[in-house]
Write a protein that binds this DNA or RNA. Structure first.
Length: 568
RNA sequence: CGGGGCGUAGCUCAGCCUGGCUAGAGCGCUGCGUUUGGGACGCAGAAGUCGCAUGUUCGAAUCAUGUCGCCCCGACCA
């Protein structure tokens, strides 16, 4: 492609609306333009990357036994009613009514594919099967952000597996998991597979693939020693239960006035103490019964862990009325001493020798509360989010926390959708069973943004070879010089004939201008033709990551470039 | 949906606090000429309902109220 024949509007200055690197660079390099919040046009350069990533995804899905199809984005609302996801999605689901009925724009396709399978799959002989598509998804994000990393409309590869047994499902799941690893590797994207909040089947039923990035919205907990990695929501800690001995003859706690200081922050400032000496008392409602959850003041309670510790099916933070009823005080002054409901405590609560807690009275806290002495403590649980330096649950080395962008998710669904949508098969004995499903997603547009987010320097993008919009930037220094253009065009034609994607910058601009743009759009190989080099009979060739170009005789330039590509 | 910020030329921004000439700069764009190894230079030019509405005022880009849009933090995110 010749630059003057395509449409790559680069920007010299950073647009004011863009904050994160991928957003800035994708705008500046002319890859994307915004239509409105959360909706972007992929410009020719950006769309080429989308296509390259999509093609890698297709190849690996096919290799893993997937079969591609294409489903409607326009879906009947009725399907979401039947699976109960109309309510689960809530406002995230774009939906609208017309004379013909009530429709949704697909946020994902479990409903549509399960409905399809319920009609077409009848016997165990048709299973197992894995179907996938690459399609636009619609989610009415409350707050789209970070350019193309989080949008209301985005491109996703979604795959669904159907099986007759957990063994079959596990084979399909592993095939997808391995395919995902290959996809991200081929895309040149660093990734961490992490254990994610598990689904209805439990165990290792869900993994997320995270691209480590400073601007990632997710937190990954990982162990550098043994490789354990999990989403912070999910991560266990290797801490042990510790029950403190009762202290005989301990002084009673002192009640102190803390007017209008209902948060740990306020109180710790007022009393000039560290939040780690506080016991945070959160009132939850677990299966309709109030229960207090105690964690150290500088820790965050984890709802999933609370649910599991209580063996409850549903856990949520209590409303204000419940809190007043249980503590006798407004929100912010709860404490374990004298509270009118059961409570459970995190392991680290036991380690506080003398704690500050709410006094269960308005504008008052207790100091000098000794766990196990001033309130009963016979067992402790893992109830909080893992934090840096916690012991690894597998090997006890220190955990670290890194930010990540979720780029893929594999999930053992079980029979949730097949049951609600009647997707069954008949076994050998003609007995009917719900089909066992898995689902597997990759955010294709988010993968593209993640690559930019992680592969750039101060001058621009640094494309990995396999996903670069073009592989070679061919720069004739002076398009008005006949010798230069003759030599450049020859190389352009030969590379193109060899199947190499070349972008020739044939704009009538000064060299410096073109070099800046070449760095910005970040093609992996740069070939410069003209000037002193051409007089010596050389082309100057360098990788985007090289500091200096190598002089190669013009006649060997094409072979040299092909060698660079082959060895990448 | 709560909190904060910003809307002035295609882009980046100044002017607004303290209302007053014909609304500015740099970059970009058009034409001509010179130039050609890291975002050139000269000359000439085009381009703005100052987001929108209402109000205050003799007079509003500037003050007030409302509204829309965008960005950031938080809540939310099968």
């Amino acid at each position: 492609m010749r630059w003057t024949q395509t449409f790559i509007p680069t920007l010299k200055e950073v647009p004011a609306d863009a904050e994160v690197p991928s957003h800035q660079l994708m705008l500046r390099s002319g890859m994307i333009r915004q239509l409105m919040a959360g909706a972007y046009t992929f410009m020719p350069l950006g769309y080429r990357v989308i296509r390259k990533v999509s093609e890698i995804v297709r190849e690996e899905m096919d290799r893993a036994g997937g079969v591609e199809l294409f489903m409607p984005a326009l879906q009947p609302m009725d399907l979401f009613e039947r699976t109960g996801r109309r309510e689960a999605f809530g406002n995230v689901l774009f939906n609208f009514e017309t004379k013909r009925g009530h429709f949704a724009l697909g946020p994902t396709h479990e409903e549509v594919i399960t409905d399809l399978v319920s009609r077409e799959i009848k016997t165990y002989k048709q299973l197992p099967i894995t179907l996938y598509q690459i399609q636009t998804k619609f989610r009415n994000e409350e707050r789209p952000r970070f350019g193309v990393l989080r949008t209301s409309e985005f491109l996703m590869k979604d795959a669904y597996s159907f099986a007759t047994s957990l063994e079959q499902l596990n084979v399909q799941y592993d095939a997808m998991y391995n395919a995902y690893c290959r996809i991200f590797e081929r895309c040149g994207l660093a990734y961490i597979p992490v254990e994610a909040e598990s689904g209805p089947i439990g165990g290792d039923a869900s993994h997320e693939f995270m691209a480590p990035a400073d601007n990632g919205e997710d937190f990954v907990v990982r162990c550098k020693d043994c490789g354990y990695a999990a989403n912070q929501e999910r991560a266990d800690t290797g801490r042990a239960s510790a029950v403190p001995a009762k202290v005989d003859g301990a002084a009673e706690p002192n009640q102190v006035d803390t007017p209008n200081a209902g948060s740990i922050d306020d109180v710790s400032k007022m009393l000039k103490t560290d939040p780690s000496t506080f016991i945070k008392t959160l009132i939850y409602v677990a299966d309709d019964k109030p229960v207090a959850v105690l964690v150290r003041g500088d820790h965050e309670a984890n709802e999933g862990k609370v649910r599991r510790a209580l063996k409850a099916t549903n856990v949520e933070l209590a409303d204000e009325a419940t809190i007043v009823k249980v503590t006798g005080a407004p929100v912010g002054f709860a404490g374990p001493v004298g509270i009118q409901c059961p409570f459970i405590a995190d392991h680290d609560v036991a380690g506080i020798a003398s704690a500050i807690t709410g006094a269960n009275a308005k504008d008052a806290h207790l100091i000098g509360v000794i766990p196990g002495t001033h309130f009963e403590l016979t067992e402790t649980h893992d109830l909080r989010n893992a934090a840096a330096d916690d012991p690894c649950p597998k090997c006890a080395a220190k955990l670290e926390i890194v930010h990540g962008i979720e780029i893929g998710h594999v999930f053992k669904l079980g029979t949730k959708y097949s049951e609600s949508l009647d997707a069954n098969y008949l076994d050998r004995e003609e007995k009917k069973h719900p089909i066992i499903m898995g689902c597997y997603g990759i955010g294709v547009s988010r993968v593209v943004a993640s690559i930019v987010e992680t592969c750039h320097d101060e001058n621009g993008i640094i494309w990995p070879m396999n996903v670069a919009p073009y592989t070679v930037a061919l720069i004739p220094l002076n398009v008005k010089d006949e010798d230069t253009m003759t030599a450049a065009t020859k190389i352009y034609d030969e590379l193109t004939a060899a199947g190499v994607d070349v972008l020739m910058d044939d704009r009538d601009q000064r060299p410096g201008f073109k070099f800046k743009d070449a760095d910005l759009i970040g093609l992996p190989v740069r070939v410069i033709i003209g000037g002193k080099g051409l007089k010596e009979g050389n082309a100057e060739i360098k990788l985007r990551t090289d500091a200096e170009a190598t002089k190669i005789p013009i006649g060997d330039a094409v072979a040299h470039v092909r060698g660079l590509i082959a060895n990448a």
